[in-house]
Design a protein around this nucleic acid. Structure first.
Length: 613
RNA sequence: GUCCCCAUCGUCUAGCCUGGUUAGGACACGUCCCUUUCAAGGACGCGACAGGGGUUCGAAUCCCCUUGGGGAUACCA
């Protein structure tokens, strides 16, 4: 790439056949970051565009397109050009200020047809009449004979000569596809990431550019739209690398039409440009397989099979009844004849399966923060190359940093495995870095969206007079939560009524019935049980007015010293009385969350239940 | 089958372009410290240049081969 164009335009062009995939999100992020960083560095207009590639009539849906845009917006990846989206905050993203839309390919068929006809008249494309079955049979035969299959250009088709006869047949309504006539020359793709990649002459056969249903194939639409929409830099996943010679060949064959919707308007002589290409490494699962929606089906299927192995009475029919799906659906699913995500999602809650997060939506539902996701996926195939003063790599950054420092030459060539554990660690770090106030806001927003029942139970903590309890609550959660979804796990005890605590028998045996340890092992046994200690501690707590975590925690050592007891022998009975378990946040925080009334009520109830025998 | 891409700790990666590093960091893991349970936190540690040939005084770095992984080969994108 020599001169830097302005505007510099990158694009993300998803096909709306599902949610936004983690790999798609990274492609979008890199395209966005590249446009923005180039704009800053070179003081030019750097634009990021979205185009919806919905040329596959069978698989595309509007909801899916909408969902993808929502996910992008949620991640903070905003597009300058493309379908308009108004977020819940009232912000409008996208639009057609450059007047190059529409951005849905299904609405651009007239344009594709004009260029298609143009190519046909140039003798660079031709109608082909073989049926799918015919072609499949040939392909199969070739594979069986260990031969390389290639579509053979029909004898009557001459490169560069308009085939009037074929065109007439097509115009008469005969079912056909249109194929592009590949030139007999080598094609070099100058890839910004991989370097020059040469495709030998004759390597690529005449591929289909318009399907029998009248819609263009991806290859054709992408070339037309990138040119017409002014895309200067195409950054996409490496799986497209082998397609690129096709695109370059078409760019070399095409010239702009005076009127984009009519081949009759003639060419204005301007050749299609070849954008700068950059093919990014792929993202894989930890086991090296490609990250895909199928992983959800796999996980659900495995869970079902495990459950069936354990419980002989659990048949496909029984499962069907339980999850309210036809038996046939279940048997097909079990036999791996269908990989429907919906089935996996339906089955999962009934069998307690955690489906792997694959799509952005999954991560959102699991309580990952958008800024952590973008940070983390930026690291999959890109690195800052910067060191901190202490010699550590710079790997935590935000979108503003990316918009500033992203660069194409720091994109790696090797595919990356998606490490969920590291993502979780980043998420935990980000949660801990929040102020209590920030955490409360974002956490409750998440709860309201995904677990309204918990949000409801938490409402009482929002009152002004419960501020201290709320602070204690947040402090109890923050260091223990890797995601927003597991936020309430550590404070489950606070979400139930004081008289609804269930006591873990093992905890009771150990902390309440067991003998309290002396402060020093050399000292004689205390002879007191946990219950005795708890009873004495209750008196102290009843006299206490300050129920801040620090105050309560400060109380314990004094009490322990006074009674010559080990700290654990004081704190553990209290912990069990308050939470029913030996595992919980610090007892100071527990008391603070419950408040004085709750604390004493729970101690009293515990004493009444566990005294006597 | 054919074509193409790739190769540093278990994982993400820095270093490679412009040969000379005790090959650095992060996550994970282990040990220890802290401690009132669980976390969190702190310290330390374990741990890699796929293999083989070249080129060179010297190769993770440049070249070739092998092996391994991946992608494409669709009327999906």
């Amino acid at each position: 790439m020599s001169a830097i164009p302005s505007p510099l335009i990158t694009r993300f062009a998803p096909s709306p056949t599902g949610h936004l995939h983690i790999g798609g999100a990274r492609s979008a992020l890199f395209c966005w970051a590249f446009a923005k960083s180039m704009a800053r560095v070179h003081n030019i207009d750097g634009r990021f565009m979205i185009r919806i590639e919905d040329t596959d009539q069978a698989r595309s849906s509007e909801e899916s397109a909408r969902g993808i845009l929502d996910d992008l917006a949620w991640l903070g990846i905003c597009w300058d050009d493309g379908p308009s989206l108004t977020t819940t905050h009232g912000q409008t993203i996208g639009g057609d200020s450059r007047k190059v839309g529409p951005y849905f390919q299904a609405q651009r068929v007239a344009i594709y047809n004009a260029y298609l006809e143009h190519l046909v008249r140039l003798g660079r494309a031709y109608p082909a009449f073989e049926t799918t079955e015919e072609l499949d049979a040939k392909r199969k035969a070739a594979t069986a004979a260990k031969q390389t299959y290639k579509y053979a250009r029909p004898e009557d088709v001459k490169f560069g000569e308009f085939n009037q006869a074929r065109w007439a047949r097509a115009q008469a309504g005969e079912r056909h596809v249109i194929r592009f006539a590949m030139p007999d020359t080598a094609i070099v793709v100058h890839d910004q990431i991989l370097g020059d990649v040469t495709s030998a002459a004759g390597e690529v056969d005449d591929f289909v550019i318009r399907k029998a249903d009248g819609f263009p194939t991806y290859h054709f639409a992408v070339v037309i739209d990138d040119e017409l929409m002014g895309v200067t830099h195409v950054m996409r996943a490496q799986e497209h690398l082998s397609n690129t010679p096709k695109h370059v060949a078409m760019q070399q064959a095409l010239t702009r039409l005076v009127d984009d919707r009519s081949a009759a308007s003639g060419s204005n002589g301007t050749s299609f440009r070849t954008p700068a290409y950059g093919h990014m490494p792929l993202i894989f699962n930890a086991d090296g397989t490609k990250m895909s929606k199928r992983d959800k089906a796999k996980a659900a299927r495995k869970a079902l099979k495990d459950a069936m192995a354990k419980d002989k009475a659990l048949t496909a029919a029984a499962i069907g009844t339980r999850v309210n799906l036809p038996e046939k659906t279940i048997t097909d699913f079990l036999a791996a004849e269908t990989d429907a995500v919906e089935i996996a999602e339906t089955v999962a809650p009934h069998f307690n399966v955690l489906l792997p997060e694959i799509e952005i939506w999954d991560f959102r539902r699991s309580g990952y923060l958008p800024e952590v996701i973008t940070n983390f996926i930026a690291l999959l195939g890109w690195s800052t190359g910067m060191k901190q003063a202490d010699g550590k790599d710079v790997e935590k950054f935000d979108m503003a940093f990316l918009a500033q420092h992203f660069s194409i030459d720091r994109i790696g060539k090797t595919s990356a495995k998606f490490d969920r554990v590291k993502l979780a660690s980043f998420n935990a770090d980000a949660i801990q870095a929040m102020t209590d106030e920030q955490f409360w806001t974002r956490w409750t927003a998440w709860l309201t969206e995904f677990t309204p029942d918990v949000a409801e139970k938490l409402k009482s903590f929002a009152h002004a007079d419960r501020q201290p309890a709320r602070h204690a609550l947040v402090q109890a959660i923050k260091p223990r939560a890797k995601t927003l979804s597991e936020g309430h796990r550590s404070i489950g005890f606070a979400l139930i009524a004081d008289d609804a605590v269930t006591f873990d028998p093992a905890a009771v045996d150990k902390a309440l019935r067991g003998v309290a340890q002396p402060a020093d092992k050399a000292m004689p046994p205390s002879g007191k049980t946990g219950v005795d200690v708890l009873r004495a501690l209750r008196t102290v707590l009843a006299a206490q007015t300050d129920y801040s975590p620090a105050a309560i925690d400060g109380l314990i050592p004094g009490f322990a010293t006074e009674h010559k007891l080990a700290m654990g022998s004081v704190a553990q009975p209290l912990r069990v009385a308050l939470t029913g378990s030996t595992v919980s946040p610090g007892v100071g925080h527990c008391c603070a969350i419950l408040g004085k009334a709750g604390t004493l009520a729970r101690i009293d109830r515990c004493l009444s239940i566990h005294t006597g025998n």
